[in-house]
Each structure stands twice: as C-alpha cells, then as structure tokens.
Amino acid sequence: MSDAVIGGGLPVERPVRRRSMPEADLRDIVLGDDELHRRLERTWATPAGLLGRLSSVDHKTVGWRYMITAFVFLFLGGFNAVAMRAQLARPENKLIGPDLYNQLFTMHGTTMMFLFAVPVMQAFAVYLVPLMVGARNIAFPRLVAFSYWIYLAGGLFIWIAFLLNTGPDVGWFAYVPLSGPEYAPGKRADVWAQMITFTEVSSLAVAVATIVTVLKHRAPGMSLDRIPLFVWSMLVTSFVICFAMPAVMIASSCLIMDRLVGTHFLQSGRGWRCCPLAALVLVLRPS
C-alpha cells in the first residue's frame, strides 16, 4: 500500500474519503515515489527568507521556539524572585518600595504560571507528541504556530508594561474587589487580564491540537493502549486545559469588562457582593 510512503500522515481515513470524491483526480496513488517525495517536500518545507522562517508551521520549529521563549520567561521570573529576596533579606529594607514590590511579585507569579509552567509543558507536547505517535506534523499546524505568536504577544505585552511601571500589582490571582476598578486604579490590572486572555487562547489552541494529534494521527497499528506514557500524560493534561482554561478566560474577561466597560459581573451595586461568577476567579486561587 502506497500509504506507507506518505508516512503516518493521514492513512487511516483514506478509503472512506476516496469513495466520496469524484473519480476525476486528486488521487496521488498513480504518482511515482520520486514525484510524491518532491511534492511532499514542497508542501512541508519551511519557506525561504525571514518572513518564511517566521511563518514556519513545522512542529519541531514551533516547539523549539516555545521552549526557548518559556525558558526566557522562566529566567525573567527568577530575576523577579531574586529582587524580592534581596528586599526581604533584612527587616524594613528600603531597597524596593511597596509599590514596585507588589508589581514584582505579581509579575513573578504571573510569569511563572502563565508564561512558563503551562507553555513549557505544551512546548514539549508540540515538539514530542507528533514524533512519539509517528505523525508527520501536529494537527492544525497553523493554529499551533498562531498560538505561539499570540503567547509571545501576551508575554511581551505584560513585560513591556512592567518595564514601563504599569505592571500589574494585584497578585497573580487578581481577586476582586482588589483588582476591580475601585481599588486598582490605572491600566495595571487591565494589562494583566488582557495577558491572561492572550495566553489562554494560546494554550487552548495547543491543547486542541495535541488531543487531535493523539486521537487521530497515530501511526497505523498504534492503538491507544500502546502510546507512550508521556503522550498519555499530555493527552490528559490537554483535556484538563480544555475544561479549566475557559473558566479562567471567562473570569479574566469579566474582570476586564468590569474595569473598562462598566459591567457588573464580579461586583455590583451598592456594597460589593460576591456574585456567583466570582467563583470562577477562585479557579486561580493558590491556597
């Protein structure tokens, strides 16, 4: 069967699809191996030039970028931690004022959770899962590339804001009412909520791609009980992300709507009251 030449790409569904297609063509089974190779090379090659390289959709390239970016953020978050520890080395130290300190620890928590912990795990998934299940590329490669860029945008957004003294200062869990419009003036908490939305979109997209890769793109003969343990763990994690992250996204969107548009999702009326949606924010609760 010539499907073997194509590699683990899309062999399983083939007979079904062939039946529904017109007889005309698109079938490549008549092509010789050389021609097939050439065509595949062309389809999967990274385009030339800077723009081409930036628009690469190869999962190894994207996964590698993901990893490097995540580790850069790890380093930056670690730098925050060092600064905080230096402040805490002595009682009543005057190295960092309370305002900057609050920004530092919020940036530290946010960076470590949303810009390192989740993305680095997904980076390994993007790089390794297709290789481990014998697929040519991850499912939805463009979506995965997009998710990388949006993750980078979110990370740069919050870090540039921090460098301009507009870093969030309401804790990485950003409870209302402390993060609400009344007690967190300025754009600081807005930046935080916007960044959450960026990174959550990105991690959701990767989770979907990982799930589809594992469930639909396995090499022929690799049944679900034979996939490596790592792939299993990534599959389970991706499902967890699919269920947990939308809640986080809704919470951060509610927060930013409350702050910018004047809605009353998380606070309301005279005297602040915990509305049920505030429970969503508790998803982010550390303890």
């Binding site: 309370p98 305002d99 609050n102 200062d169 309401v170 804790g171 409870y175 402390l178 007690y183």
Partner: peptide, 9 residues
C-alpha cells in the same frame, strides 16, 4: 494573610 494592596505587609 490575604494580599490586600500596597500595605498588606
């Protein structure tokens, strides 16, 4: 014990 703003400490 719950972060509450600038002078929580």
């Amino acid at each position: 014990a719950e972060f509450c703003g600038a002078q929580h400490a």
